[in-house]
Amino acid sequence: MTWLLGTERLILEPFTEDLIEKTAELAGDPEVAATTFLPHPYTIEHAKEWIASHASWMEEKKAFPFAVKQKKDGGLLGTMTLRIDEAHQKGELAYWIGRPFWGQGYGSEAARRVVRFGLEDIGLHRIWAAAISDNPASTRVMQKAGLTYEGTLKEDMLHGGEFKDIDVYGLVRGSQRRSM
Rank of each mutant, 00 (worst) to 15 (best):
G91L: 03
F101H: 03
K48I: 12
L93R: 07
A52I: 05
E92I: 01
G75P: 12
W96G: 07
I97W: 10
D73P: 08
K62Q: 14
E59I: 13
A67S: 06
L77M: 06
W50G: 02
T79N: 15
L76G: 06
T81M: 07
T81R: 06
I51Y: 01
Q70E: 14
A94W: 10
G75W: 13
L76R: 00
G78L: 02
E92V: 03
G78Q: 00
K71F: 08
L77I: 02
E60D: 13
A94C: 15
K62E: 14
H88A: 08
A67M: 04
G78E: 01
A52F: 02
Q70I: 11
P65T: 04
D73V: 07
Q104N: 09
D85M: 11
R99W: 06
D85Q: 10
K71E: 10
E49P: 13
H88Y: 10
K71C: 08
I84C: 06
S53Y: 09
E86D: 12
L93P: 07
T81Y: 05
H54R: 11
K48M: 12
S53V: 09
K72S: 11
H46Q: 04
H46S: 05
G103A: 03
F64S: 03
A47R: 06
H54A: 14
G98L: 01
S56R: 14
A67V: 03
G105I: 08
I97Q: 09
K71H: 09
E60I: 13
A52N: 05
A67F: 04
D73M: 10
S56F: 12
G78Y: 02
I97K: 10
A63C: 11
K72P: 07
K90W: 07
W102N: 05
K69W: 08
L76A: 05
I51L: 00
S56E: 14
M80K: 08
K71M: 09
I51Q: 03
G78F: 00
E49L: 14
I84D: 00
A63R: 10
F66I: 04
A55I: 13
G75E: 14
Q89D: 11
G98M: 04
G75R: 15
V68M: 04
G78M: 03
S56I: 13
G103S: 04
R83Y: 13
F66M: 04
L93M: 08
P100W: 02
H88R: 09
K48L: 15
K72H: 11
A47F: 01
G74Q: 05
E86Q: 13
R99A: 06
G98Q: 00
L82W: 00
T81K: 07
A67E: 00
H46T: 05
R99H: 07
Y95A: 06
D85A: 10
A55S: 12
E60N: 14
W96L: 07
W96A: 06
W50P: 00
M80H: 07
Q104I: 09
K69H: 08
L76P: 00
G105S: 07
E49K: 15
V68A: 03
W102P: 05
I84K: 03
R83E: 15
K90D: 05
A87N: 12
S56L: 15
E86G: 12
H54T: 15
L77E: 00
K62S: 14
I97A: 09
E59Q: 15
T81W: 04
Q104V: 08
G78K: 04
E60F: 13
W96C: 06
L82I: 01
